[in-house]
Amino acid sequence: MRLRAKHLGLRLSTWAVLLFLHFPIFIVALYAFTTESSAFTFPPPGLTLEWFEVAWNNGDVRDALSLSLRVAATATVIALILGTMAAAAVWRRKFFGREAVSLFIVLPIALPGIVTGIALRSAISIGGIPFSFWTIVIGHATFAVAIAYNNVAARMRRTSPSLLEASADLGANGWQTFRHVLLPQIRPALVAGGMLAFALSFDEIIVTTFTAGNQQTLPIWMFTSLVRPRQRPMTNVVALFVVALTFIPIVLATRLTRNTEGTTG
């Protein structure tokens, strides 16, 4: 009896922690519908869909959304190509500096984001490079490579090299082996890594602040309107939208990689 009561305590605290982790998102969702425009009163005095229309018709929000989507898509493609190449290079091979290479690839996500941000900002300043779409993409791709690499490398570790040998024995050339043997093997990792990289890039702010100049991605728009609160109800709607757009790829990615170790960071 005492044992069961103990389990109960443990079980309750477990669910309490999970509630703690997820409940704030529901609050954001709730406030997107509140009729109140200047305070955060709970419970909301009334519910409305008005702010969705306002946000949708706002030019700044639309531009920011479009910029964020284009940056995330471009950074993801770059990250997948570079990450896969790097993972293939260190796979089943020992060479001088191998450890250094894998350390260097994950360094951008191991160091605090602000260090990466200021480092890129310093390079932009010293090189006299104008802020552009590409300065944002470069910042995002740099940490997204680490995510693609982690996912693909984890998958490759579980791919048997005898598959490639069999393919070569049957007369396939390197490209055919890649196309028909290796690619199908690593496809789930590519999809999962790509989706995670996209989601991270889409709501990245720490590095973006330093590489964007005057351009506004959706998170930067949100952050600016938080610091100078003018359009509170619209901010809530945008927040809900960001959650929705990052939630879907993340859930799909975790489902895809459920059996793969080493995908968390």
Partner: peptide, 22 residues
């Protein structure tokens, strides 16, 4: 559990900070 813990790890850092202001 695993998925429920991973989702907040990956998702909307800024929004999750903002939610606490509310």
């Amino acid at each position: 559990f695993f998925v429920l813990i991973l989702i907040p790890l990956w998702s909307s850092y800024l929004v999750r900070v903002y939610s606490w202001k509310l």
